[in-house]
């Protein structure tokens, strides 16, 4: 304080500040380094390997040969006819893509149809009961996915619970074939991914200010208008989050279509697995994986754009 005007002490103060700032930056980098390391090693690294593999030649017994090739990418969409070698669209792949998208969309719609009323129900319970309901919703999550899928199988197979009950009640005479159909896959995935829809929707409904509902009624809205114009737009972010959380893993689902779809109703995940297993075509598997990722990203971008754009025409 007494040396306020002397330059040496001023300089020191500045230097201390500078040193502290540098130290701060250094510390931040140091603190972030485990995260950076993990992201590099376990996220970016494997992804790069997959990209690399997709441009190599398939080895004879799986694995890859280090020879550059676009065959993997070529076979994602195209195939040569076995007999006359003409180029064709790989319709087997296309139908699997299409089934994956169709079933994932169906799963998203079904989880929304069941999940939104469930979330609304939970969010409108007294505070003391809500945690119990949320707990019950998440209980299946603690069980192994394979076990849960087999449980679904137990429900829908020919000698399963549903068919037995229906036969016992004389509603049907012969068991309904549900196993190994698209229905079975959608049913199984809906069951498996339901909590992923319920939780984010619940979170957004819980935050909804019910006085807004009163305000809507006060301003002459009927129930339907109130839901459509006030509740839905406010709850929409939660529904978008839930839809993404359901759609993305559905598109890449592997166990559920494998168990419930049997061998013939393949989905994207099974197709990829096939290339790395029996197919012994790793570059194709890698190219398919990246195609799936791109598909998901495009779908997400489109979704975000559509749902974001809505806001602007809300009220012209």
């Amino acid at each position: 304080m007494t040396q306020q005007n002397s330059s040496p002490s001023m300089k020191t103060a500045k230097e201390v500040e500078e040193f502290a700032r540098r130290q701060d930056t250094k510390n931040r980098l140091l603190l972030a380094s485990p995260a950076i390391l993990i992201i590099t090693l376990f996220a970016a690294g494997p992804l790069l390997i997959v990209v690399l593999y997709s441009f190599l030649t398939a080895g004879d017994y799986g694995n890859v040969k280090w020879i550059f090739s676009t065959d993997g990418w070529f076979s994602v969409f195209m195939q040569r006819d076995i007999f006359d070698d003409t180029l064709q669209i790989a319709d087997a792949h296309v139908s699997i893509f299409w089934r994956s998208i169709k079933l994932s969309l169906l799963t998203t719609v079904l989880t929304a149809a069941f999940g939104i009323p469930t979330a609304y129900f939970i969010a409108t319970r007294p505070l003391s009961q809500r945690n119990l309901w949320l707990f019950l919703i998440t209980v299946p999550f603690w069980t192994n996915l394979l076990v849960r899928t087999i449980a679904v199988m137990e429900l829908i197979r020919g000698e399963g619970v549903i068919n037995n009950v229906l036969r016992w009640a004389h509603i049907i005479d012969d068991p309904i074939q549900m196993m190994f159909t698209d229905f079975a896959i959608a049913f199984g995935m809906t069951y498996v991914y339901l909590p992923l829809m319920v939780l984010p929707v619940y979170a957004s409904i819980e935050k909804l200010d019910f006085r807004l509902v009163e305000a809507a009624y006060d301003l002459y809205a009927n129930r339907w208008k109130c839901f459509w114009r006030v509740i839905l737009p406010i709850v929409k972010p939660g529904m978008i989050a839930g839809s993404i959380l359901v759609f993305v893993p559905s598109l890449g689902a592997y166990i559920t279509p494998r168990v419930l779809g049997g061998g013939k109703n393949l989905m994207f995940g099974n197709l990829i697995e096939l290339q790395f297993g029996q197919g012994r075509n790793w570059p194709l598997g890698a190219a398919l994986s990246i195609s799936l990722m791109v598909l998901v990203m495009v779908a997400l971008l489109y979704y975000v754009k559509v749902s974001g754009g809505d806001d602007n025409n809300e009220h012209r």
Binding site: A216, L219, P233
Partner: peptide, 26 residues
């Protein structure tokens, strides 16, 4: 009969004009 709420209860996803128009639209 219309109400001015204690916390206003304005619709957060609408504009100023949108809020005012809501009742008329309904």
């Amino acid at each position: 009969v219309n109400t001015v709420f204690q916390n206003y209860a304005l619709f957060p996803h609408m504009t100023v004009a949108g809020n005012i128009e809501f009742g008329l639209e309904m």
